[in-house]
Design a protein around this nucleic acid. Structure first.
Length: 350
DNA sequence: CTCTATTA
DNA sequence: TAATAGAGG
C-alpha cells in the first residue's frame, strides 16, 4: 500500500483550503479512489451496492457523487487509471493477494458464526477492483464530461508526471508514492464531506484534506528527491515491501542525511547483506517511471445527461430523482467554472 | 463514501 | 441551521 512517509511528511503537511484549488485541475489516482469506494460503500452487513443483475455498483456511486462534489467546489478532477503493473511490483501484488485470501477465509468463518461486525470488516478487505469496474468508471466519467487518463503503467507515476509537466495543480492520492515519482504537490483526503468511521470503533472523526508541497518537504528535510527515494527504499516500497529489517523512517533519514545515498552508507552502520533487493533498479523505477503524455485534452467537456441517466438509472438501477438532482448540480458547477474561467482568462473550454 | 429525511 | 441515522443499488 505505498510508502509510509507519514513521519517525515508530518512537519510540512498542512490543511488544504478548498479555495486554493478552485478552478484548478487535480490528478486523481483512480484506482486508489475506486478501491476506497468499493471498501466503504456498503450495507451494514458488508454487502456492496449492486444492480438487479447482481453486479457491484459501489464504485459508480462513489465516482459519480464525489466528482459532482469536487466540481461544486470548483475542483476539476482528472482521473488517472493504472495500466500494466511493472514486473517489479509482483511481490507486493502477491502479498496483497494472500492477505485477501486470508480475509476471505475469515469472512467465511465470521458468516458461519454470525458475527456482523467481522463480516463487515472482512467484506471490506476482500474488495476486488475488476477491469470491468475501471471500464465502467471511465465510461461514466466520459458521460459527465470529465477527462480520464490511461497510464501506460503505474497510475501514481502518471499522475505525478502530469503534475510535474504543469498539466495539473496537484496529484491526489492516499499514498505518498507521488512524491517519489516527482509530483509537485500531493493532496491527501481530497473529499468534501469530512466524516469517516474509525476502524473497529463506533467513533466518527473529521477528515480534512491536506496538502504536501514537495519543494517544502525537501527543503525542510534538507535532502533531494533522489535522497527521499533512497529513504523510502530503505523503509520499504511497493517494489521491496519489506525494506531493510530494523530500519524505519527515522533511521533511514539519518543514514541518508549522513551518507547521501545507499551505496555510501558505512558498512558498520548498515551491513550490505541486509539489503536483499536491487535498490538501484528500484531507484530508477521512481526516478524514470514509464509515463506518457495524455492522448486527450484534459479540459472539461459538456456533460451528456441522457447518457448518464441511461447508464446509471436504466442500466444500473440508480434512483432517477437522485441522479437527476446530481446532474443539475453538475451542470451548474460546470457553468460556474466556465464563468470563472472567462473572468480569469483561464477558460477550461475551447 | 455520500445522500436525504428526520430530529432537535 | 446543524447534527445524526439509515439507506443507497
Amino acid at each position: 500500500m505505498g510508502v509510509d512517509l507519514s513521519d517525515l511528511v508530518a512537519e510540512v503537511k498542512r490543511e488544504l483550503s478548498l479555495s486554493e484549488v478552485k478552478g484548478k485541475k487535480v490528478g486523481i489516482d483512480a484506482y486508489n479512489a475506486i478501491y476506497q469506494f468499493l471498501a466503504a460503500i456498503r450495507q451494514f452487513d458488508g454487502t456492496p451496492l449492486m444492480n438487479r443483475e447482481g453486479k457491484v455498483t459501489s464504485h459508480l456511486n462513489g465516482v459519480f457523487y464525489r466528482t459532482v462534489n469536487l466540481l461544486e467546489e470548483g475542483i476539476i478532477p482528472i482521473y488517472v487509471f493504472d495500466g500494466k503493473p511493472p514486473e517489479m511490483k509482483s511481490q507486493e501484488l502477491e502479498n496483497r493477494r494472500k492477505i485477501k485470501e486470508e480475509a476471505e477465509r475469515k469472512l467465511e468463518r465470521a458468516r458461519e458464526e454470525g458475527k456482523i461486525e467481522e463480516v463487515r470488516k472482512f467484506s471490506q478487505m476482500t474488495s476486488r477492483l475488476t477491469s470491468d469496474m475501471a471500464k465502467e468508471s471511465k465510461e461514466l466519467l466520459g458521460f459527465m464530461g470529465i477527462a480520464t487518463v490511461q497510464a501506460p503503467s503505474e497510475g501514481e507515476a502518471e499522475a505525478a508526471y502530469l503534475n510535474s509537466k504543469g498539466l495539473t495543480f496537484a496529484s491526489a492520492s492516499q499514498d505518498y508514492d507521488s512524491l517519489l515519482f516527482g509530483a509537485i504537490r500531493l493532496i491527501r483526503n481530497l473529499t468534501i464531506s469530512g466524516k469517516r468511521k474509525l476502524p473497529n470503533k463506533d467513533i466518527y472523526i473529521e477528515i480534512k484534506p491536506e496538502i504536501i508541497d514537495s519543494s517544502l518537504l525537501v527543503k525542510k528535510l534538507e535532502i533531494t528527491r533522489e535522497q527521499l527515494i533512497d529513504i523510502a527504499i530503505l523503509v520499504g516500497t511497493d517494489y521491496n515491501p519489506d525494506g531493510v529489517k530494523g530500519i524505519g523512517p527515522k533511521k533511514a533519514y539519518r543514514l541518508i542525511k549522513t551518507f547521501k545515498r545507499i551505496e555510501n552508507i558505512d558498512k558498520k552502520e548498515l551491513d550490505p547483506e541486509m539489503i536483499k533487493f536491487d535498490y538501484k533498479k528500484i531507484r530508477e523505477m521512481f526516478l524514470n517511471p514509464e509515463v506518457s503524455l495524455p492522448s486527450v485534452p484534459l479540459d472539461l467537456r459538456d456533460p451528456d445527461p441522457e447518457k448518464i441517466i441511461q447508464f446509471l438509472v436504466k442500466e444500473n438501477d440508480f434512483n432517477e430523482e437522485r441522479v437527476k438532482g446530481a446532474i443539475q448540480r453538475l451542470q451548474k458547477a460546470m457553468r460556474d467554472l466556465r464563468d470563472m474561467g472567462r473572468q480569469t482568462g483561464l477558460d477550461q473550454w475551447f
